[in-house]
Design a protein around this nucleic acid. Structure first.
Lengths: 201, 201
DNA sequence: GTCTATAACGAGATAGAC
DNA sequence: GTCTATCTCGTTATAGAC
């Protein structure tokens, strides 16, 4: 714990976030947070009046932080291939804690979500797609990536492939399975499509 | 309704299957099935003593039917590229009814599932991977598919990419988004990696 | 901002009549 | 095989004291 404790609302969000990422939005309750933080359910309702409120703010915070991570990647390098790998690592880091992407998980609960949460989930995917589209276009311009169909379609494929790879890999508790999928995915985006070597494992 | 009504247990499974595929295992209740079939909850418990029983039999039936569909594909053609497209259509057909793959959905609920259901989900993925691995090996032997890393890793990528593509596409209620992803995925598996044309849309 | 207490409802599940 | 009735517990949420 660095400087300044997280106010109660932040701690609630921290626990709720982990619960949603592991159990899904319909797989946890205020009682779960209550017992873990040793604060009553009534107090939770003071900070987040309804579960829908909690969920909506969960998405907003997650989206903000994710976007900040993408901005950080932009600052690290100009190589699209490298940026894509870092993007994949963002997912792998989540999976290592045995969680799914918050919005990937919520996408599975989508039909049961209140409208504001549905909108938040799509906004998250849209933002990921937009960032990836730009990176892919940059990579193509630098002749680092293949020109192969619209960049935004490639971006969509990257998002959904990684979400799916997390989902399946978690059932096997096997981060390697995710990383193997991700590496093949990224390698396939690279130019030229002729011959390239593979990562040793 | 052709010949022979489905016995009650089958009708229960039909409704439960749709509910799980749309809402998730923690997103529906016996009361939902009860009201839809106009049969009491007590009667449901006669056929499936616990929700875990119901879930386990749901997976078993889904797995059986899916395997039968794969066997049918094997009987239709010898072209690996064609078989892969048919495999993708299996998923697209599910998505068109606004459902996810039963086991893809259950993978998101994985942490909250009883052990027999967890085992069933993995068995389903294992079977899909095994079928795809064989098809990919056949396709490589026939020089229709690229030799690019272990066939079973390619198979894993196909499974998880399609599961993820369904998940995301459903949030947009956009089957096209899935189909576009699937087509690009399959096209990338084909040989030679040099130049190939794209489907017009 | 946190508490006790409780409302109001829905969940999975069971007993026992028909 | 389906029913009525009921149990027990968990759920989201609120009222009002401290």
């Amino acid at each position: 714990m660095p400087l300044g404790f997280a106010p109660t609302a932040e701690r609630i969000l921290d626990v709720a976030e982990r619960l949603v990422q592991t159990q899904g939005f319909n797989g946890f309750s205020y009682a779960d947070i209550s017992s873990e933080l040793k604060i009553t359910k009534a107090s939770l309702h003071y900070h987040f009046a309804t579960k829908a409120d909690l969920g909506t703010q969960l998405i907003a915070r997650y989206h903000e932080r994710f976007q900040a991570a993408l901005d950080a990647i932009d600052g690290e390098s100009d190589d699209a291939r490298r940026k894509l790998r870092r993007y994949g690592q963002l997912y792998a880091d989540v999976l290592r804690t045995r969680r799914l992407c918050l919005c990937g998980m919520l996408a599975s609960d989508y039909a049961t979500l209140p409208k504001p949460m549905k909108d938040g989930v799509r906004a998250f995917f849209d933002a990921s797609e937009a960032w990836l589209t730009r990176v892919i276009e940059e990579g193509r311009h630098a002749k680092a990536l293949r020109r192969d169909g619209p960049a935004n379609e490639t971006a969509r494929m990257v998002v959904s492939s990684l979400e799916g790879a997390m989902l399946v890999a978690r059932s096997y508790d096997d981060v390697q399975r995710f990383e193997s999928n991700a590496e093949r995915l990224f390698a396939d985006l690279e130019a030229p499509p002729s011959r390239r070597e593979h990562a040793s494992r």
